[in-house]
Design a protein around this nucleic acid. Structure first.
Lengths: 297, 297
DNA sequence: TGGACTCAATCGCCATCACTTATGCTCGAT
DNA sequence: ATCGAGCATAAGTGATGGCGATTGAGTCCA
């Protein structure tokens, strides 16, 4: 048996409301003849009459079978409407987006992006997940913030280069750039050896600097407090300093390093896939936010 | 925007399961080309691609938009299946039926009919309702058991004529028919003046009998107990006596009346309406049960 | 009782649709 | 470089679905 058709059910619902085929046709934008045929088709598929036609100027009356079809039909039409609603919402950008981050890489830029995204699309469903380990994959992700190479078939856009800067207690070191080599054996406050911290320490070592790590803790703010207290120096990314207004803190002084440890932050997404409007928009926002930040570096 | 079509959604679901248009087509009994066109049509109605075609011998991959459509589509198809299921069940007779009774008129035949109906169609939904007052209407009813004229456009079938019989304590009255007139001033146990009781008393009065009602109570069994206890006689319908095996009770004796108060029980249903298979079957059963009973009268 | 009226059903006509077959195009694999 | 898997597209065809006009059934009213 062929399928029922939503069109037929819609006609049926309107007939049930209007009472006659003709009025229903008018409301639906069809001719009476057409509606008659639609109901005939519907009755053929369900296997019995759904309306009794008393003949003459009397409204048609729904049959018991019609009641069954009508009840389910309304439900069905409601679902169909829910579908188009969902599609519309999706196309308007209120969909779901899966964003991957890589450890703490984006603790500073991501919140801004997400805030702006939620302002534009209050209904959207944003899911953040930490991609684990050293092999970032963006299977099942729409976007990935990362700074290293990503395997698989991906596209990317570079967000910015971020320099690591030396932070010392005010007056400890003459203002201006500092040669990285000078950090060798210097007392240093730093993160525990996370992926990034390890990368930083390797980079410093390559420049001939092997600091003494006198204290390790998580959290940029905590580290800055340690520096203020004179426990040691720190090498932190620009964004972290910017976020904590380190430049306006007169107990701290900030120095570029020569050579400067720099990391490149990029946004990755799977190649060759149709992207959701929300993902596209998120990318735009991320690029914008990154550009704003980069200008102020 | 045109409607989504169930056919297209079905194709989409199968493609999502199979991975390729071709295999899906095979499972659906279409050609690959047809499925391709169906998805193209679907994509046109939803306003964006639902599958990414990587090209080459790779399976297609659903897009974010596709996920949305697919999720709702499955739901929709499930509802559509529920609809055809419901229709099938209905056509098989497992529908709903609204039966009207009129006061206690059918307390004896209706239970039998319903038991048989439930045996045949365990899933069906039987709704009994007492039609109120003296103006029985069968608006919103499929069947009505009644004994009087019913207004409106109805069809009917007569079930049987039921005689009222005189019941006395054993030995009180010589066996055999009794002239109704003899009940005049006789001590009588009876129902309270329900519709039927009033009718009965009018009928007796027309035959010249105005009994003394020494006790009124509801329930045929209770009335029979009173008769056994010698409190009075009773005039009860054949079915009531039959149901309580009054003939095999040697403390009772049963006598036809001359003339015999007789009521005609019929089954009514609305004319010119398409009836449900369940209603048709119920009518058959009722007629059968009535015939069986009538034979034993 | 017969005419006017109100509906739904039906017929002829045409445009569109939904398949099919055949062919083209794009990958990845050999 | 070529083959094969797999989707897209073109052209053809029967069926479908729409419309307008007409018919037929039933009600209402004079």
């Amino acid at each position: 048996m062929a399928d029922v058709e939503l069109r037929h059910l819609r006609a049926m619902v309107v007939i049930a409301e209007e009472g006659t085929f003709g009025q229903a046709a008018a409301r639906l934008g069809y001719t009476q003849s057409s509606v008659s045929q639609q109901i005939a088709a519907l009755e053929k598929t369900v296997g019995g009459p759904v309306f009794d036609r008393p003949g003459g100027p009397k409204p048609v009356r729904i049959t018991p079978l019609g009641e069954v079809v009508l009840a389910h039909g309304r439900e069905l039409l409601q679902r169909a409407e829910a579908l188009t609603d969902a599609v519309d919402r999706f196309l308007a950008g209120n969909g779901r987006i899966d964003i991957g981050t890589f450890q703490g890489v984006t603790t500073l830029i991501l919140p801004v992006v997400i805030r702006r995204l939620l302002e534009e699309h209050p209904g959207c469903d944003i899911r953040l997940s930490d991609v684990n380990a050293e092999e970032p994959r963006l299977r099942d992700l729409d976007l990935l913030f990362h700074d290293g190479p990503v395997e698989g078939d991906v596209e990317q856009v570079k967000l910015f280069d971020e320099q690591y800067l030396l932070v010392t207690g005010a007056g400890t070191v003459p203002a201006g750039p500092v040669r990285t080599k000078l950090l060798d054996d210097a007392p240093m406050v730093a993160w525990p050896p996370t992926y990034y911290q390890r990368w930083l320490e390797r980079t410093l070592a390559q420049a001939g600097a092997q600091p003494r790590f006198v204290f390790r803790t998580t959290g940029h703010e905590t580290i800055l407090s340690m520096v203020r207290a004179g426990i040691g120096w720190a090498v932190l990314p620009w964004l972290a300093l910017h976020a904590h207004d380190a430049w306006s803190d007169d107990r701290l002084s900030i120095h570029p390093l020569k050579p400067a440890p720099t990391r490149e932050l990029s946004l990755y997404w799977p190649a060759g896939r149709t992207e959701s409007p929300l993902a596209l928009r998120t990318r735009e926002i991320a690029v914008e936010v990154a550009r704003d930040l980069a200008e102020r570096m």
